[in-house]
Each structure stands twice: as structure tokens, then as C-alpha cells.
Design a protein around this nucleic acid. Structure first.
Length: 970
RNA sequence: GCCAGAGUGAUGAAAUUGGUAAACAUGCGCGACUCAAAAUCGCGUGCCGCAAGGUUUGUGGGUUCAAGUCCCACCUCUGGCACCA
């Protein structure tokens, strides 16, 4: 062996040998059925024209290490690799470089494979798949046909997202903030014929089953958000003409049966039903058309508004920050089913047509958006939910009488001085605003003015704003009763300082004090309403969107929100569940995708291509640029398009839309199990053996791919093609590698680092270890050339050590070393299992440091070193294999058995105990493991450095944690 | 705005789940080897202090013998959702 570790020669040699020996071939079933299987999968790459950068292999290295360990532990490993090659990027690359996408993909795959092979992965290339291979996409098409048969695929003519630059329709999942996720163009809404998959049918199951998955919480959360389940109530508001008081409007006979006309609304907060002050329809709401000729008085205005809305882009329309707009539909009113109140109806674009019922009951007092709208159009705001404020410093006293009352708290500001009128109580330690009860028959503002004059003498005040209503519960010490008060918090300003005389009685109770805003904010004012008042003064009135107690709500008054929702729903509506998730727009007007396997027959309509005629292959064409007219380029290939109806034989046309990029990747993990089967998608026996994927590794795609794949998988489960309800049991999230400059690696920034270069200079094993040692696997970290040297040094030190290490059993097995070895086995094994590769590597570094120290005095036995090599083998497969053979072994280290640790050897003879005095570290003590408190205490107290601190004081308390710490409290 | 996660040296980070904060590595400083440099090896390296010692995990408070870890409030960053009623 050479003194210097020559990675180039060694890596080449072993990669060739492993290939020849086929050590990574995966048998479908293990001869010993008691041995378990493990399916370890990476998200397969999209073979782009740019080739791999160093970020790509990070996940592949992790699964390589993991699966190598699993294999050594006796698992039957399925660890395959393939290519996701349909879709826009490949097609655009081909157009730009003027080659056929098929050729481009072939070239790119070849390049990717070369790059990957240099890193020394253990893939079983016999199972390679490619989504653009007709033998593969035959089954993608097959799944589509099954969905069609079950009614889960359907044609739709609804407006969908259209990217004018990519010239294709897109699914909701393909948008990023209203922009095309691919090219960043503003997406338009375009009505067009398209194929749609009913993913919504699976929304609930996909949501529920998330709980069963061992996935990172943030990904599950992203999926929950995307599915967006909300439970609420649907109820109907009847419509009535302005001038025809009774009865409500009826539909005229004809196509629709006669009945009262109504608007259905969906709400998650029926508890606010009594606070409805108007209704809002989405501009697309169909009822508007129905009402048009009869009742709408201002049709021109309404029509104009609807047209304007349609002209807006989706982003313009859904920008929450923009000012709300809308138009009242004059001539009709809606009737609140709860109290019979008539409220106006508006059309406004802040209501979305495709969520809920496309109509909303507006409760401005309790909803941000309705509030903004109501403020703008000066609509009434009626508070019906009030917060419940319990005064903790003056709680109700049991046994005392409880008195309800309506009250006002009056904030009076002197605009000249910017100070607020407060009362300092003489017999109680209180500072309050003016306050008092509302007398019978008296209005709140009236009561407030009366109280101001009675308590402070000020005669001329002006009402400014309502700061909100609350129910406060406290013990009124001055009256000796428990109080439940509905307090209106009102804000006034002094007009002038004219005063009347205050009664003696009043001036006995309190004195006036003017305080600045800061003072009222920071001092202890007695009201439990203070947060509400301060907020109101600072920001003006805001809608109260939390739950509380119902107010002014007929028979439901005083009930809490939750109970009220149940009861009101029962009485006036119906409980419903809605999802944000929309059906999956599944057709693309582009060439490079799986043809959708149906034909359009003049007689029979849409007819499936029969299964035996699958795959419907993509025709070879000269021109495959998008047409831009909303049709696929396939439209022009007449001899492909024109065909016969499989049902009746009459002339028919093939469907020319193709499937989106995400189709092939929605089930590929199943094909790896049985990649060459031409009879079925996956052999059931093999599927039962291998499924589900035990560990799935990848980044990004938190929503799209993982939602789609779960949906397809559940469908395949329903039709009996797979035996599990979820495809990926465990998911490990991969953090990206950024370029040195902290930016994303891209051609645009010219900062791409090619793994080939790193492998050349530093070697594959160094690249592998560096990427794993960078930090926690899920962290996004910038590449740093400087740190490569660290792992390279580590590798060279092992190499050098192997040259001097004993190759026989003669070595002296020092007990300390053996102890460390077993600890190392334990830690490395657990860390790989948990994808904590960075700490696994540091543990091995510690072990090597120790080895080198020891070597001066003793030799290390072959067994110890062999064991260490095995631990290292998954990380540095080339170097360990070379050393292994140098030690005289004839078979591959990667087929060895994974070391097991011996619990008894991990226990140390002596432990270092920390001695603390009052929690501060004052010394250490080495003592036999498991020593008793008495022994430790005695020894510790005898140490001079401890005596120094204790002086003559005695410990009040001693805390002892065996083998860890002793703390004297003095 | 809502939801989730995170804030620790110059840098990437570690910390047995409440028990010596900064393991491991990079960088930096000093030294050895060398004519010299690189490589390699040795020592040092949170901050203040000559030292004894003090002090330190985003900020402020709390629980505890003991807090990076638990609780409360706030600030900042990252990711997801966002006019979804």
C-alpha cells in the first residue's frame, strides 16, 4: 500500500469491482423469510440539461449510508434510482437547443448517471426506470383509465389557470403566489376544456392519515394547510323584492320548479348570525343572472362591476391588502332567517366563487374583511359576541349575590392637553374612568353624559367612538355584590371645560385626576376592560374576531360561542365541511407528456382506449412547440389524431392534451418493486413484500408531489392494486446546499459547483463525508471549500493509521479503548438510524483521536480496527474496502455484518462527578461508577478546593444525582 | 395576519431531553520540522481580567438546589398558508 491515499486509483478500482460482482443486486425475496426488508428511496431526479450540482447528491449520500448499514444489519434492501423526465423543463430545454426532447432526455440521463457513478452509490441499476419510457407510462395511462372508470377523472370547462408564457393550463399546486411556479409569469384565468382529477374526494382521508405518518411536522402541517379543512354551517337567506313586502320572491315556473328564491351562505361562525348586516355575492354567483330581468334596479352598475372584476388578474383580485370594492344590488333584500331582519345584498370581488357557496353573510363586527368593507360603504356594525373578562384581582365571592347590570365606561380626553379623565377613589385603592350603570329606558351615550356630569361636573362633551362591548365579572366591594356587567366602552372628548357643581356625595367618593396616555397605559387602572380600551384608543375600533358570549341574539343571548354554533346550526342550517383543496387540473397543452388515453367519438362521446391498446405512445414529430391557441401541438399530427372509436368503430379523434409532469412521479415508487412487468403495474406478491417505502428522502415538494402521490396511492389501494394505505411510512426532509455566496446554485448566478470537480480533487469519500458532516441533515447550509480539508484529513489519518496498525490479534486491547469502541458503535448505529450523520462522523473522529493517542504506548488489535472500519464503511466505501482487503480479507466489507455493541462494555469503571456549591461548579471528583451518596459526599468534602468554598459553613441541603453531580446548598 | 420551526463562539455546529454550555470540525495565534513554503505534528483559542475570579445560549421576567433545555411576555429569522367566510 501507498503512504499517500490515492483516491483516484482506489475509487475507480472498487467501483469497477462492485459492478462486476453485482454486490448491490436486490433479490425480490430473501431466502431467509425471517429477515426483514427495507425500502429506502430518494425522490428521483429530473434530469435537467445542467447536470448535477453538489446539492443533488446530499440526499443520495444519506440513503446510501443508511441502506448500506441496513444491508449489513441483515435487511434485504431495495434502493433504486430512476428518472422523472416528462414535463416542461425537458421540453423547453429541447426547444432551446433544437433537439428532440427524447434525445435531450437520453443525453441528460447519461450525464447524470456518469456523475452519480463517481460518487460510489449502491443502486441496483437493474431496476432503473424512466417515466418517459412507453413501458412505464403505459401504466400511468392505465391508472388514468381506472380513475376515469370510477368517475374520478372528468372533463371540465371551468376557467383554469393559464400561463401565457408556458402556454399551458396549470393546477393550483403549480402556482407560487399567483405566478407560474416555472417561469414567474402572471397567470390568467381562462375557460377551456380540460381533464380534472377528483382529488377532493380523498381530502378527508389524506388529512386523517397524516397522523399515522412518521414525517416531519412542518410537512404534515403544510399538507393540512393545503387541504384546508373547515367545518361550518350552510344556511339560506330568502330574497325579497324591495317593493313587494310579502311574500318572498318566487322563481317563476319553467325549467326550475317553483319555490322561494334564496341565497345559500357558508360560515364557520354561525354564532355571529344575529350580527349580519348585509350579504355579499361573488361576482360569478349564478343567482345574479336569475334576478337580472325582474328585480335588480341598478343592473347597469352591477353588470359594470362584474365586467371589471373579470378583467382583473387573479393576483389583483386576491390581494388581501388592496381596498375592498363592491356594489349594492338594489331592489332586493335578504332576510336573516334568525330574526327576520332585512339586509342589503352586495356583489364584491373579495368573495370567491369557488369556495363555499360563493356567498357570504357579512358580520362586520366580527370579521376583518366585512369590517373593512362596512367601514368603506358605511354599513352598520352590530356587535353580537362579547369577550368575557374575569377580573382576577377581584373575583366573584361565593355566596354573595350576583347582580347583572348594563354599564358604561367612559373615556374622556381633553384634546387641548391630550390627557384623560380619571377618578381616584378615596376609600378603595382604585383608579378608574368615569363609569356607571345605564338606567332603564336610557341610551348608552345618554347615560355616559349623565355620569360625566354627575361625577366630574363637565357639561360639554362630544361622543367620538365606541370602543367595544364586554362582559366583565368581578366582585364589587363597595356594594358587596358579585357583578356581571355588560359594559359599553365609550370614548368622548371635552368640548370645553365648563363645569357644574359636583354633589358632596360624589366628591366624598373620588377625586378627579388627569392622566397622560402613557400613564393610563402603564399604571394599574382598575378596569379589566383595560386591554380592550387601550387597543381601541391606539388603533381605533377593530372587529372582535374571537369567541365569547352572545349578545343581542334573541334566544341565544348569553350562550357561549361554541354552544351557540351547535344550536343555531340545528335550528337554521346544516353542518357542512369544506376544503380549500381543489380538484387537480390534469391536462397540459404541451407535447412532452403522457398522452391522455381517450378518444372523442362523434357518436359515443368520450371513450377510453382499451387496456390492451396501451400505451398510447407519443408520436414522433418534427415540431413540438406549443401552439398557443389552447390546443396541444399533437392536434396537428393528423394521422395520429384520427383514429377509430374503440366502441363503435366510427371515426374518432384522439385526446391531444397530455398529462402534467407530476403524473409519472405519483406512483414510480411502486414500479421500482417490479420495474419490468408488462402484465400488471406491480406484481401483488412483490408489492406485499416491499411496500411501503420505509424511508423516503427529499426536500421541497412538501405539498405537490407528496399530495399527488398519496392521492394516487389511496386510489390504487381502493382498486386493490396495493396493500397499504400510505406510500411513504417515514419521510426525512433534506436541507439544501447553497452556493458559497449563500445563494441558490444556478446557472444564472454562475455559482454551480459540480460534484465531478470535488471528486477529482478530494475524492468521493471526502465529498460524501463532507456533505454529511456539514451540519444537521435537514439544515440548509452554504457550501464551504475550507471545510472539505477537515474530512479529508480524517480520511488520511485513518489511512496512515491502517499502515501501522497490527494486522493480527496481538494488539493489546486496552479496556478504555474497548469501552470507547462500544460507545462508538452504539452512537454511530443510532445516529445513522436517525439521520444524524454529522454527529455519527464526529463520534468516529473522537474514536480516531483516541486511537492515535493510544498508539504511542500500545498496539491496537485487529478486531478493534476491523470493527471501526465497518462503522466507517457506509460513509467511505472506497477507502474502507481498500484497507479491508489490505488486511487480508477476501470478500467485500460491505457484505460484512454490522457491529453490535455490548451494553456491559459501555459501562465505565470510573465516573467524573461534578461538585457544585449553590449550583456553581467548584470541582470534580473521579470515583467508582455507582458510588453512593455518602461516599461521594465524604470524598467531595475532603477536597481542598471544596473546603475553600465551604469554609466553616454547613450544607443545608445536598442534592445527589448518581454518577453525575453533587450539589451542596449552603 | 394565521400556522409550524428556529435563534448558542469568528464559522458549520454539539449538548445523554433539567445536571460541567461550546463536543467534533474549520478558521485564527504560537511552537516544532524546513534554507524556505506547503503538508504534517504539538499547544492554545466564548467574553472580561495579569491573576484570583467573574460572566455567557435573541430580550425581559418566572419555576427549580440546578434552565440552552420547562412556563409567561416580547423581538428577530426561516418555511408554509393567506380576502378560504
Amino acid at each position: 500500500m501507498n503512504e499517500k491515499y490515492d483516491h483516484k486509483e482506489i475509487e475507480k478500482k472498487w467501483q469497477k469491482k462492485w459492478q462486476e460482482d453485482g454486490i448491490y443486486k436486490t433479490p425480490d425475496f430473501q431466502s431467509d423469510p425471517t429477515k426483514p426488508k427495507s425500502y429506502v428511496l430518494d425522490m428521483f431526479p429530473y434530469p435537467s440539461g445542467e447536470g448535477l450540482h453538489v446539492g443533488h447528491p446530499k440526499g443520495y449520500i444519506a440513503t446510501d449510508i443508511y441502506s448500506r448499514m441496513k444491508k449489513m444489519q441483515g435487511y434485504n434492501i431495495l434502493h433504486p434510482m430512476g428518472w422523472d423526465a416528462f414535463g416542461l423543463p425537458a421540453e423547453n430545454f429541447a426547444i432551446k437547443n433544437k433537439i428532440h426532447p427524447r434525445i435531450a432526455v437520453e443525453k441528460n440521463i447519461k450525464r447524470f448517471k456518469e456523475q452519480l457513478s463517481k460518487i460510489g452509490f449502491n443502486y441496483d441499476w437493474n431496476r432503473e426506470i424512466n417515466t418517459t419510457d412507453p413501458g412505464y407510462y403505459k401504466w400511468t395511462q392505465w391508472v388514468f383509465l381506472k380513475m376515469l372508470k370510477k368517475g374520478l377523472a372528468y372533463e371540465s370547462f371551468e376557467p383554469i389557470n393559464w400561463c401565457p408564457s408556458c402556454q399551458t393550463g396549470l393546477a393550483n399546486e403549480d402556482l407560487d403566489g399567483g405566478l407560474c411556479e416555472r417561469c414567474g409569469s402572471v397567470v390568467e384565468k381562462r375557460p377551456m376544456r380540460q381533464w380534472v382529477l377528483k382529488i377532493t374526494e380523498y381530502a378527508d382521508r389524506m388529512l386523517k392519515d397524516l397522523d399515522k405518518l412518521d414525517w416531519p411536522e412542518h410537512i404534515k402541517e403544510a399538507q393540512r394547510n393545503w387541504i384546508g379543512k373547515s367545518e361550518g354551517t350552510e344556511l339560506e337567506f330568502k330574497i325579497k323584492g324591495n317593493n313587494s313586502p310579502q311574500p318572498p320572491l318566487k322563481l317563476r315556473g319553467g325549467e326550475q320548479s317553483e319555490g322561494e328564491l334564496g341565497i345559500k351562505v357558508f360560515t364557520t361562525r354561525v354564532d355571529t348570525l344575529f350580527g349580519v348586516t348585509y350579504l355579499v355575492l361573488a361576482p360569478e354567483h349564478p343567482i345574479i343572472e336569475k334576478l337580472k330581468d325582474s328585480k335588480i334596479e341598478n343592473w347597469n352598475e352591477v353588470e359594470k362591476y362584474i365586467k371589471e372584476t373579470k378583467a382583473k388578474t387573479e393576483i389583483e383580485r386576491t390581494d388581501a391588502k388592496k381596498e375592498k370594492s363592491g356594489v349594492e344590488i338594489k331592489g332586493i333584500k335578504a332576510i336573516n332567517p334568525a330574526n327576520g331582519e332585512e339586509v342589503p345584498i352586495f356583489v364584491a370581488d373579495y368573495v370567491l366563487a369557488n369556495y363555499g357557496t360563493g356567498a357570504v353573510m357579512a358580520v362586520p363586527a366580527h370579521d376583518e374583511r366585512d369590517f373593512k368593507f362596512a367601514k368603506k360603504y358605511n354599513l352598520p356594525i352590530k356587535q353580537v359576541i362579547i369577550p368575557r373578562l374575569i377580573d382576577k384581582s377581584n373575583p366573584h365571592i361565593e355566596g354573595k349575590e350576583t347582580i347583572f347590570r348594563d354599564a358604561v365606561i367612559v373615556v374622556v380626553k381633553n384634546p387641548k392637553t391630550d390627557k384623560y379623565l380619571c377618578l381616584k377613589w378615596k376609600k378603595h385603592p382604585w383608579v378608574t374612568f368615569v363609569m356607571g350603570g345605564i338606567d332603564k329606558g336610557e341610551g348608552a351615550i345618554e347615560a355616559a353624559k349623565r355620569e360625566i356630569e354627575e361625577e366630574t361636573g363637565y357639561k360639554n362633551v362630544k361622543f367620538i367612538e365606541n370602543l367595544g362591548l364586554a362582559q366583565s365579572e368581578f366582585y364589587a366591594a363597595h356594594k358587596g355584590v358579585n357583578r356581571v356587567a355588560h359594559t359599553r366602552n365609550l370614548f368622548f372628548e371635552l368640548v370645553n371645560e365648563e363645569k357644574s357643581k359636583i354633589s358632596e356625595e360624589e366628591s366624598e367618593i373620588h377625586e378627579i385626576e388627569w392622566r397622560s396616555f402613557d400613564e393610563i397605559q402603564n399604571s394599574d387602572m382598575t378596569h379589566s376592560e383595560m386591554p380592550l380600551i387601550l387597543d381601541g384608543l391606539k388603533k381605533g375600533m377593530k372587529p372582535y374576531t374571537e369567541e365569547g358570549i352572545l349578545f343581542d341574539s334573541g334566544e341565544f343571548t348569553k350562550i357561549d360561542s361554541e354552544t351557540a354554533r351547535e344550536r343555531i346550526t340545528k335550528k337554521f342550517g346544516e353542518k357542512v365541511t369544506k376544503y380549500k383543496l381543489r380538484d387537480w387540473v390534469f391536462s397540459r397543452q404541451r407535447y412532452w407528456g403522457e398522452p391522455i388515453p381517450v378518444v372523442h367519438c362523434q357518436k359515443c362521446g368520450v371513450v377510453s382506449v382499451s387496456e390492451k391498446d396501451l400505451p398510447v405512445t407519443l408520436p414522433e414529430v418534427e415540431r413540438y412547440e406549443p401552439t398557443g391557441n389552447g390546443e396541444s401541438p399533437l392536434e396537428n399530427i393528423t394521422d395520429w389524431v384520427n383514429t377509430k372509436c374503440p366502441k363503435c368503430g366510427s371515426p374518432a379523434k384522439r385526446e391531444t392534451n397530455t398529462m402534467p409532469q407530476w403524473a409519472g412521479s405519483s406512483w414510480y415508487y411502486l414500479r421500482f418493486i417490479d420495474p419490468k412487468n408488462s402484465k400488471t403495474l406491480v406484481d401483488p406478491e412483490k408489492e406485499k413484500y416491499w411496500a411501503p417505502v420505509d424511508v423516503y428522502v427529499g426536500g421541497d415538494h412538501a405539498v405537490r408531489h407528496l399530495i399527488y402521490a398519496r392521492f394516487w396511492h389511496k386510489f390504487l389501494f381502493d382498486i386493490g392494486s396495493v396493500s397499504t394505505i400510505e406510500p411513504f411510512a417515514r419521510l426525512e426532509f433534506l436541507g439544501f446546499i447553497l452556493a458559497k455566496d449563500g445563494k441558490k446554485m444556478s446557472k444564472r448566478w454562475n455559482n454551480i459547483i459540480n460534484p465531478d470537480d470535488i471528486v477529482n480533487v478530494w475524492g468521493a469519500d471526502t465529498l460524501r463525508m463532507y456533505e454529511m458532516f456539514m451540519g444537521p441533515f435537514e439544515n440548509t447550509i452554504a457550501w464551504n471549500d475550507d471545510n472539505l480539508i477537515g474530512v479529508r484529513r480524517f480520511i488520511e489519518r485513518i489511512w496512515k493509521f491502517s499502515l501501522i496498525a497490527k494486522k493480527t490479534e496481538e494488539g493489546n486491547n486496552n479496556q478504555k479503548l474497548e469501552n470507547l469502541l462500544h460507545k462508538t458503535i452504539k452512537k454511530v448505529t443510532e445516529d445513522i438510524e436517525n439521520y444524524k450523520f454529522n454527529t455519527a462522523i464526529s463520534t468516529m473522529m473522537i474514536f480516531l483521536n483516541e486511537l492515535e493517542k493510544l498508539d504511542h504506548t500500545s498496539n491496537v488489535s485487529k478486531t478493534v480496527f476491523d470493527t471501526f472500519l465497518k462503522l466507517l464503511a457506509p460513509f467511505a466505501p472506497h477507502m474502507t474496502e481498500e484497507i479491508w482487503h489490505g488486511f487480508g480479507h477476501k470478500t467485500s466489507i460491505h457484505l460484512e455484518e454490522w457491529p453490535k455493541f455490548d451494553e456491559s462494555k459501555i459501562k465505565e469503571e470510573n465516573t467524573l462527578i461534578t461538585i457544585q456549591i449553590n449550583g456553581k461548579v467548584r470541582g470534580q471528583l473521579e470515583i467508582k461508577t455507582g458510588a453512593s451518596e455518602e461516599t461521594v459526599k465524604e470524598k467531595a468534602l475532603n477536597l481542598s478546593e471544596i473546603q475553600k468554598w465551604l469554609a466553616d459553613k454547613k450544607a443545608k441541603k445536598v442534592i445527589f444525582v448518581p454518577d453525575r453531580i453533587i450539589n451542596f446548598v449552603i
